[in-house]
């Protein structure tokens, strides 16, 4: 049950997949200890590039490597990497280069380091780039398979990872499917209409599952969908959820604008589903504290999710 941080699973996956993907090159900007690329750097030193604290150059160099057949996997904290939006827009997006951007320490989950280290707008920025695939795995098993998919895919990918450890939410038969949300919590009696379907992703999945359990203990029914692909979004999952639930709730360790909540709302609006969508997300720049304290303060804890599922609910 007790799992690993998704950055740790990523670090293991790139070592495991190194021989299978001989063109993979791993790039760092002085954060390899944190982004978990050191094992790769040690074992495959000729395929590891340390670019120093100069992320925009790293993005451009990665694009050039990709234009000559390499698969660059570049890592930094989510905020520092996607903060170099213009080089990513042109050298990666517009040039359609096979660059893999890996942003770790996503969201409030970094904790004590505080606001300046928190990637809270990265998904919004990356979602606006045509052709960018955004993956946010929720546990080690999903991370390993997502990394493999990312390396096989020809085109730009943004992989968003957590600093904090996450409980395993997938069973041994789990199969990653890009573009598909998967159910990670199902109420015991799911035959009747559910009070809510909760869409969560990455570090918020454990909070969402905790909330769903709490709801069940109080006699309410909620399902949790893990949106491991944030872009392109699984619109069919939203349609299915709308048919079986009274409301949709989204929760993300990211600004409430432009991320998961927006994606679900856009799908609901596009298909005129006429279902309320409650979006929980961060509305500030964050601050120092323990992750649990921060989730509480900024409105994305399991208690907030429970409340969002029940607030003003038209109970039968």
């Amino acid at each position: 049950m007790a799992g690993a941080a998704t950055r740790e699973a990523f670090g293991e996956a790139i070592v495991e997949l190194a021989d299978q993907f001989p063109h993979m090159v791993v790039m760092d900007a002085d954060l390899s200890k944190s982004t978990m690329t050191q094992a790769f750097a040690k074992k495959f030193s000729a395929r590891h590039l340390e670019l120093g604290i100069a992320e925009q150059n790293m993005v451009g160099v990665g694009a050039g490597l990709a234009l000559c057949g390499k698969i660059p996997v570049m890592t930094s904290f989510a905020c520092f990497l996607t903060g170099r939006l213009e080089p990513i827009r042109i050298a990666v997006g517009y040039n359609r280069t096979n660059v893999k951007l890996v942003g770790t320490h996503a969201g409030l989950g970094i904790g004590e380091d505080g606001a300046s280290q928190m990637g809270l707008e990265d998904v919004a920025a990356m979602r606006a780039l045509p052709g960018m695939v955004i993956l946010q795995p929720a546990d080690a098993a999903e991370t390993r398979q997502a990394v493999r998919w990312m390396l096989e895919h020809e085109g730009p990918v943004y992989l968003r990872l957590t600093r904090q450890k996450l409980d395993d939410c997938h069973g041994p038969d789990y199969q990653f499917r890009m573009g598909r949300a998967d159910e990670v919590f199902k109420p015991k009696d799911a035959s009747a209409r559910l009070q809510a379907t909760i869409f969560a992703s990455g570090g918020m999945v454990p909070e969402a599952i905790r909330a769903a359990r709490e709801l069940e203990s109080r006699g309410f029914k909620a399902r949790v969908m893990n949106a491991g692909t944030l872009h392109p979004f699984d619109g069919e999952a939203v349609v299915r959820a709308a048919k079986t639930s009274q409301r949709l709730v989204t929760v993300e360790d990211h600004n409430v604008v432009g991320g998961l909540g927006s994606a679900v709302s856009e799908c609901a609006a596009k298909d005129a589903l006429g279902i309320p969508v409650v979006t929980l997300g961060v509305r500030a720049f964050g601050e120092s504290g323990l992750p649990a304290e921060l989730y509480e303060k900024f409105g994305i804890s399991s208690a907030h999710i429970v409340d969002a599922c029940l607030r003003n609910l038209d109970l039968p």
């Binding site: 000729a46 160099v61 694009a63 050039g64 234009l67």
Partner: peptide, 29 residues
């Protein structure tokens, strides 16, 4: 992507040398 002979889409200034560096690095590897 639109014109043969163009190695990199540019115009947003300051980025070309980084891209060229990546190409040279790939060649060296």
């Amino acid at each position: 992507l639109r014109l043969p002979g163009i190695e990199a889409s540019t115009g947003s200034l300051g980025q070309g040398l980084s891209i060229a560096m990546g190409m040279a690095l790939a060649g060296m590897m």
